[in-house]
Amino acid sequence: MLKKGSIAPDFELKATPDQNIKLKDFLGKNVILAFYPADWSPVCSDQMALYNEMLKYFTKHNAQIFGVSVDSSWCHLAFQQDRKLHFPLLADFEPKGEISKAYGVYDEEAGESKRALFVIDKEGKIAWSYLSPKGINPGADGILDALEELK
């Protein structure tokens, strides 16, 4: 898993079936990457629901959050609409798990991303990272502490 101080590997992933997100377009802004195993599973849903409530806190810290899993953009779209999520979910779908692997948070056995959080600073460097046990929703206190330290 990539640690504090590493350059965050760039990526281009689908946020919707016809829109791509490039990490390097967000230089100058803080970025939160929340890798999670799968859409629809109960723990992740709670985790994403929590981040959904916290968008105004992230905005206050000039931060953009992205969820990342190996689900396809169509699956993300349905999940997002069902849970009324107001932030992008990125599809690490083809080649499967490529970006999760680049960040060192791919679970080869399950074929899913691990549950991991990264805070990336305005220069594109990893400022904080955290790997959560699979069944445990890591909450958001670590993210906020990391964002505060960036000031």
């Binding site: 985790q47 409530e53 806190y57 909450g139 206190d141 906020l144």
Partner: peptide, 12 residues
Amino acid sequence: DFESGVRSGVNG
């Protein structure tokens, strides 16, 4: 209250 929850690690 909400903010204190986030700070305290409330995750659901």
